[in-house]
Write a protein that binds this DNA or RNA. Structure first.
Lengths: 133, 133
DNA sequence: GTTGCATCTGTAGTTACTACAGCATTCATA
DNA sequence: TATGAATGCTGTAGTAACTACAGATGCAAC
C-alpha cells in the first residue's frame, strides 16, 4: 500500500476540513496514519475511502457515535445487513421526528409573522402572543 | 412588588429546569433576583412572565441570542413591530432551511432503508452506497 | 537566505444546557 | 425539640462536533 497523500490533499479530496480530520483521528474514528520522516501524516486509498464514508454519513445526519458503530460493524467483517438496517432505520426515525418538531415551529412562526403588521409602532402581536399577561 | 417565589416553584410554574434558570441568570438573560435572608433566590410575577417568554421562544427554536435581542427590544420601551418582525422572519427562514435539509436526508435514508433486504448476510446496499469503491 | 506555504501540537471557544460534589438551610414530623 | 428529607447554594466539568487560534517546524523555490 502506498501512502502518499498529505492531510491537505486528503482534505481537498474529501471536502473535510484539515482540523476535522485530526479531530476524527483523536476521536479514534479515523485510524492513526503513518508519518513522513519529518512527522507529517501520510494517508492512503483506504483512508480516503473511510473518510469519505464518514463524510457521507455526517451529511446524512448520523452522529459520530453512529458512524463509529457502522464502521465497527464493517471492520468486524461479519456484520449482517440486518444490523446496518437497524442503525439506519433508527436514525431515519429521529430525522422524521426532528422534521415534525421543526414543522410545528414553522407553522407557529409563520402565523406570527403573518399577523404582524410590520408597523412603526410599539405594538406587536408577536410580542403580545409570547409575552402575554 | 411581592417577591415570594422560590426557584423551585418558579421552575414548576414555567417548566424550566432549576439549573437552567440559574444558567439564564448567569447568561444575563434573566435579571438577578433578590435574595432571602439566607441567600435563596426570590422571584416575582415579572420574573415569571419573563421566564415564560424565554421558554416559549426556546420552544420555537429561537437561540438565546435572539431571545436576548427580543427582550432588549421590549425592555427598551420604544421598539417597533417592524424590528420584531425582522428577527422572527429571519428565524422562520432558518427553520425552513433546516426542514429542507432534513427532508433531503430523510429521502436518502428512506431510500436506503427500503433497498435493504434486512438479510442475515454481510452484503448491505446501505454500506455499499456509502462505502463504495 | 529568505519568503511563504503546509503542517505540527495543544488549548480554548462555541451552544444550551445537564450533572454532579459538597455544603447550608428549611420544613415536616415524631 | 430533635432529626431526616427536601430544597437551595456555589462552582466545576461534561456533552456534540467541530472551529480557531498560537507558536513552532519543515520544506521548496527564488
Amino acid at each position: 500500500m502506498s501512502k502518499t497523500l498529505s492531510i491537505g490533499v486528503l482534505a481537498k479530496h474529501t471536502g473535510v476540513n484539515i482540523e476535522t480530520i485530526r479531530f476524527y483521528e483523536k476521536q479514534g474514528i479515523l485510524p492513526v496514519p503513518s508519518r513522513s520522516s519529518s512527522g507529517r501524516r501520510l494517508y492512503g486509498g483506504e483512508d480516503l475511502k473511510r473518510l469519505s464514508f464518514i463524510h457521507q454519513c455526517r451529511k446524512l445526519g448520523f452522529s459520530l457515535k453512529e458512524v463509529e458503530s457502522l464502521i465497527n460493524l464493517v471492520d468486524s467483517g461479519d456484520y449482517t445487513c440486518e444490523q446496518v438496517h437497524e442503525i439506519t432505520a433508527a436514525h431515519a426515525k429521529e430525522v422524521k421526528q426532528k422534521i415534525k418538531s421543526l414543522t410545528k415551529m414553522e407553522s407557529v412562526l409563520d402565523g406570527m409573522v403573518e399577523q404582524c403588521s410590520r408597523g412603526k409602532v410599539p405594538d406587536c402581536p408577536i410580542i403580545d402572543s409570547l409575552y402575554g399577561d
